[in-house]
Design a protein around this nucleic acid. Sequence first.
DNA 1: CAAATAGTGTCTTTGAGACACTATCGT
DNA 2: ACGATAGTGTCTCAAAGACACTATTTG
Lengths: 220, 220
Amino acid sequence: MKNNNDINEKQFLEQYSADEYEKPSVAVDMVLFTIDEDTLKCALVKRSEHPFKDMYALPGVFVGIEESLDDALKRGIAAKAGLHGIYFEQLYTWGAVDRDPRMRIISVSYLALVPKEKLDTTAELYSIDEIGEMSLAFDHKKIIEYARERVKNKVNYSNIAFEFLSEEFTLPQLQRVYEILLDKPLYKANFRKKIEPLITDTEKMTSGEAHRPSKLYKQK
Amino acid sequence: MKNNNDINEKQFLEQYSADEYEKPSVAVDMVLFTIDEDTLKCALVKRSEHPFKDMYALPGVFVGIEESLDDALKRGIAAKAGLHGIYFEQLYTWGAVDRDPRMRIISVSYLALVPKEKLDTTAELYSIDEIGEMSLAFDHKKIIEYARERVKNKVNYSNIAFEFLSEEFTLPQLQRVYEILLDKPLYKANFRKKIEPLITDTEKMTSGEAHRPSKLYKQK
DNA sequence: CAAATAGTGTCTTTGAGACACTATCGT
DNA sequence: ACGATAGTGTCTCAAAGACACTATTTG
């Protein structure tokens, strides 16, 4: 049994190396989240070609032979959102054989988070709820759901919530981000106790609104 | 700026699709952990060919064009460890351009966990501490460190510890697994309170040893 | 009964959750 | 003064941590 498998494996490797086997294509697809109109939204692109023509899909690029996965993603972000230096992390690699009807494409998915203000205004944004009702190209709906879960989990043990805000923010703003990402209301006092060690006071305040102004903070 | 990038992206896609660009190879590499001699160990293979000849590396296979990533991994596990039906999960995809000196290979890494008893006896196992002192082929040391961290984190909010034991086990055994994975001692009483909801009593006991026997449990 | 390991009871500390209260702006 | 939102004090409850104790086997 063991030896038999070993031999099979060796043959496979030799044949593969000899280019007798076709290689899959590799793409990176990005789930770019932002918060807009008090909801979590994801950037989508309308496909102009088959397959899934006229359906929405995640923005993505093929990985060049002399380009790392992260670099391919950065190229994709720059092309799609016209920006640099935003937060991203790799999510998961999707490798079902039939995920693309044209040919074998393995997709390395990434999560990207960006404050709405930084985002190119031409980006098409759809709320998570809307996307839930839509049908997307390829397995992209599943990828977005995966990303949504990752964000929900990671909010509690990381600082990703800050990625949705600009450098200075108020605690009510930050709390709202947490509430949107966690999809549940939070108690103000408890929230403040918990995030206190993560933030640092600026001396500034908001002003001009018809109610008590709030302090501006920065991430520590 | 935006339009310029869009055009570049379109050109890239067209050229890529037209196979004017070379495709990377895709491999799956597995970090197979087990517990043996009271330590966490990882399966390695000694490379018989260049590059990194005679150095140790993670077992891996190339992904066939008609084979999903998970299927490729299962093939690798069967070849290496001579077994089926063990726990595995995808870890991370490594895509640095120069990670393999021969050619561009993107590696999708997987974590596999198996009780020592199920493992093929020919597997070469090295403890995490030993591996820390060794130098491994490619970026495989980094991959193992990544896997080690994943396990350490996941122990606390999942049931992966059970994957290192056979179906029936004692609580001292289970506690020892937790201690090895977390790399710290645990209080017996507290440990038992915490895992109580995860386990179910069998009516059996251990016997034959020169001390009080212990109950055998199964995972709930 | 001695050595060794299995198993339990309970006090303390920490942090999450709930809620009521006070503070400060513009109109 | 009022409406609206910002910000604080404190009680409760559940879980994590620490430690001391009891129980059951073999030799």
